[in-house]
Simulated scan of single mutants.
Amino acid sequence: MSLNVVHLVGRVGGDPEMKYFESGTQLCTLTLAVNRRSKNQDQPDWFNLKIWGKTAEIARNYAKKGSQIGVKGSLEVETWTDKATGTERSRPVIKVDTLELLGSKRDSAEALPDYT
């Protein structure tokens, strides 16, 4: 039995980048910062996301830098040869199947009561 499912909730690290292909398919790439608890402070882990099709359009329109999102997808490892050095390189990428828009930093700040 094989299982490759990733669930993440975090904040978008930068505005999404879109690519459009001649076939009509869209690809949205973005980074996601997910806090990892440590003894002294939260440390973010950074994940590269790839979102295809109609979900890519939604991400482009609504997932801005700092907004909180949830994703479900699978882990893939991209490999390539570095043109400058000829070295084999790789990086993990999350291929997103489901995207949930959970709000922005501003939305969270506005929801908090002001006790000053």
Rank of each mutant, 00 (worst) to 15 (best):
V96H: 06
W46I: 10
E76D: 14
Q26R: 15
A84W: 03
S38Q: 13
V34A: 01
R37S: 08
L75S: 06
V96K: 04
S74V: 05
R60K: 15
N35P: 03
A109M: 12
L32E: 02
D45E: 15
K64D: 01
K105Q: 13
L102D: 03
S2L: 13
K50W: 00
A63Q: 00
V12N: 07
K65R: 11
Y115S: 12
T98D: 11
D97C: 03
D97T: 10
T87I: 11
K19T: 10
T98Q: 13
A59I: 01
T55S: 07
C28Q: 02
T81D: 11
R91M: 13
L3H: 11
E17G: 03
S90G: 13
F47Y: 12
I69S: 06
V71G: 01
G73K: 04
R37K: 15
K50E: 12
Q26W: 02
T55A: 05
K105H: 07
L27N: 07
L32S: 04
P16M: 06
T79D: 09
D82H: 05
K83P: 00
K64N: 09
G73S: 05
L75M: 13
W80F: 01
L30N: 07
R36E: 14
R89H: 09
L8Q: 03
V96Y: 07
N61C: 12
A84K: 14
R89S: 11
S38L: 11
K95Q: 15
A56W: 05
G13T: 14
T25W: 06
G86P: 06
E100M: 13
S67M: 00
P16H: 02
N48S: 14
F47H: 08
L49F: 09
T55G: 00
L101W: 01
C28T: 13
